[in-house]
C-alpha cells in the first residue's frame, strides 16, 4: 500500500476534526525498526511510514486514545478485528474510532506444532513456561487484556505467586488465554513481544478454534454480535450429548 495514501487519509481525518489523533507507525531508533506514532496535527502526517518493520497491533492504544476524542488507527485485518471486539465488549464507542486499513504483509515466523501425545504437550508447556520471567509484556501488548486490574495482580485472592517458575506461569498464561475466548484476532503480538520466545499465541488460537467449532463464532467480525461467552442459546452443545 502506498504510504502517501495513508498520509492523505490521516490528514483528511485530522483536518476535518473527525479524530483528534491518528495512531500509526514512524521510524524507530534505527532504520530496521518502527515505533508507534501519535499524530495530532495534519502538518505531522509525513512522519507516518508503512513498511515491513510496522508490526505492532496498534489497537492496544484504542481505548486510551479514544478517551481524548476521536482516534484513527492504522490496522491490518487482525488488528481491525481487535477494534471490532473492543466495540462489542463496550470498551470503545464505535463513533469514536476510525480504521485506516492496511494489507497484512507481515512475515510471520513459523509456529511450533503442539506435540501429539498429551504427556508430551504437558511437558512442552511446562518447558516453555519455565522460561517465563513474568514480565507481562504479552498482557500489555494484547488489545484483549483491557481489565483495570488483572487477576494476576490481585493479592486476595492470590491466583498465582509472583515468582517465575513453570507452575505459577502456567496459571497466568492459561487463565489469560481463557480470558481471550472469543476476543483473539490472532495478531500474535503476545508471542512477538515475548523476550524469551514463548509461543503463547498458540493457547488463544486453540481456544478460538474450539469457539468456532462449538458456537460457530469468530472473534471481532460483527460489531453488533454479543461476546460469545456473554450469551447462550438453549440449544448450545450439552455435556450429556458429549459424554460430560
Amino acid at each position: 500500500m502506498d504510504i502517501q495514501e495513508i498520509r492523505n487519509k490521516a490528514k483528511r481525518l485530522l483536518e476535518s476534526g473527525e479524530v483528534k489523533v491518528v495512531v500509526g507507525y514512524e521510524r524507530g531508533s534505527t532504520e530496521s525498526k518502527s515505533t508507534p506514532a501519535f499524530i495530532e496535527s495534519p502538518d505531522d502526517v509525513d512522519r507516518l511510514i508503512w513498511d515491513a518493520t510496522c508490526v505492532n497491533n496498534l489497537a492496544a492504544y484504542a481505548i486510551q486514545e479514544a478517551k481524548n476524542g476521536g482516534v484513527a488507527i492504522i490496522a491490518r485485518d487482525c488488528d481491525a478485528r481487535s477494534i471490532v471486539m473492543l466495540v462489542q465488549e463496550h470498551q470503545l464507542d464505535k463513533d469514536a474510532v476510525r480504521v485506516i486499513e492496511v494489507p497484512d504483509e507481515t512475515q510471520w515466523a513459523d509456529d511450533p506444532a503442539l506435540p501429539e501425545s498429551l504427556e508430551e504437550r504437558r511437558a512442552f508447556w511446562a518447558k516453555e513456561f519455565e522460561k517465563c520471567t513474568r514480565c507481562y509484556a504479552c498482557r500489555q501488548a494484547c488489545p484483549g487484556c483491557f481489565c483495570n486490574t488483572c487477576f494476576i495482580d490481585r493479592i486476595v485472592p492470590r491466583w498465582a505467586a509472583k515468582r517465575a517458575g513453570a507452575s505459577d506461569a502456567w496459571m497466568f498464561h492459561v487463565t489469560r488465554a481463557m480470558h481471550q475466548a472469543g476476543r483473539c484476532g490472532d495478531c500474535r503480538e503476545c508471542s512477538r513481544v515475548c523476550p524469551v520466545g514463548i509461543p503463547v499465541h498458540l493457547l488463544a488460537r486453540e481456544i478460538e478454534t474450539f469457539v468456532g467449532e462449538l458456537f460457530d463464532y469468530k472473534a471481532g467480525m460483527d460489531m453488533d454480535a454479543d461476546p460469545v461467552l456473554g450469551t447462550f442459546t438453549p440449544e448450545d452443545p450439552d455435556p450429556n450429548e458429549h459424554g460430560g
Binding site: 486453540e206 462449538l214 448450545d236 450429556n240 460430560g244
Partner: peptide, 29 residues
C-alpha cells in the same frame, strides 16, 4: 447454568491442548 455450559464446554475442549486428559474434568447436571 446456560452461561456455565458455554464456558465449561469450551474449557473441556481446551484441556487436551494443555496436555490434560479431558476425563479429568467432568461436568453434569
Amino acid at each position: 447454568n446456560y452461561y456455565a455450559r458455554r464456558r465449561l464446554m469450551l474449557l473441556k475442549k481446551f484441556l487436551p491442548s494443555l496436555g490434560i486428559e479431558p476425563e479429568r474434568f467432568h461436568f453434569e447436571w
